[in-house]
Amino acid sequence: MIDRTTTTQSATSFEPHGGRGRFNAAFFQVMGPYLEWNLRRLKRRVFAGLPREVVEIGPGVGANLRYLPADGALVAIEPNRYMHSRLHAAARRHGVQLDLRERTAEQTGLPDHSVDSVISSLVLCSVQDPVAVLTEIRRILRPGGTFRFVEHVVARSGTPTRAAQRILRRPWAWTFEGCSCERDLEHSVHAAGFASVTMDRYRVHTPFLPFNTHIAGTAKA
């Protein structure tokens, strides 16, 4: 069972923009089924066999609740308060016990080595400091615990997707509250000090060209 006692750390400062925060909550509610249709093959494999209690960084409106076991429990690290009402509603629909914490992933407030599994999808692109987030995930995972992820990443150099990422980087980041489509998260996860990492690259096919290059895998503490 996850120890729910918090540490004395304070949450990293994050204040969602009133307009963009609401837009992103609505966008992921409306576009969720379409994104899920594109990513479900990855998620079914990576999130298979999750333990009953899971920590998720940036769960948004609850797209991944369907992958938790029946009567599961989720500690949700979600700093965008405009997502919260939709996340609560999704947890009720899926019968998941929700412990929602309005914090950033750099400082979850969870004790050292208290968690069996952390999951993320489409989140490391938008955190302020992905290296700090990966360090925090390692800190809270028990030895042998797993970090399971499905993330969109920078495309290979010289490809049309890479060119689109470069051209659209600023409007993309502004619209999606700091989301970068140019992060080499493949390297970041491998360099984060996990005991082992299993990872694959994938391409999905959506009209959102900068979004279409992905990694999916599991890192073990």
Rank of each mutant, 00 (worst) to 15 (best):
E53Y: 03
Q29A: 11
P51R: 07
F28D: 04
F28K: 00
R41I: 10
P59G: 01
V30S: 01
F28P: 00
L39Y: 02
G49S: 11
V30Y: 02
G49L: 12
W37K: 15
Q29G: 09
A26W: 02
R41W: 09
P59R: 04
Y34R: 13
G32A: 02
A48G: 09
L35C: 04
A48F: 06
Y34A: 11
F27Y: 11
R52A: 13
R40D: 15
E53V: 05
G32V: 08
L50W: 08
E56M: 10
L42A: 12
L50Q: 09
L39E: 15
V30C: 01
F28W: 10
G60A: 07
Y34T: 14
P33L: 06
N38H: 15
A48W: 11
G60K: 04
R52E: 12
V46C: 09
N38L: 14
R44N: 15
Y34E: 09
W37F: 13
L35N: 12
K43N: 07
F47Q: 09
L39R: 15
G58K: 07
A26H: 01
L50V: 12
P33F: 01
G58H: 06
R40S: 13
E36Y: 00
A48V: 12
G60L: 02
F47N: 10
V46S: 06
E36Q: 14
V55W: 02
L42D: 08
P33I: 04
G58R: 03
E53F: 02
F28I: 00
E56V: 09
L39T: 15
P59K: 05
P33S: 07
Q29L: 03
F47P: 10
F47E: 10
A26V: 02
V54A: 09
E56S: 07
N38I: 00
R40T: 14
L50N: 08
V54S: 08
P59M: 05
A26M: 01
A48H: 12
G58M: 04
E53I: 00
F27G: 00
V54H: 05
G60M: 06
R45E: 14
K43D: 11
L50K: 05
M31G: 09
Y34P: 00
P59E: 11
L39G: 04
A48M: 01
L50S: 10
R52N: 07
K43W: 04
E53C: 01
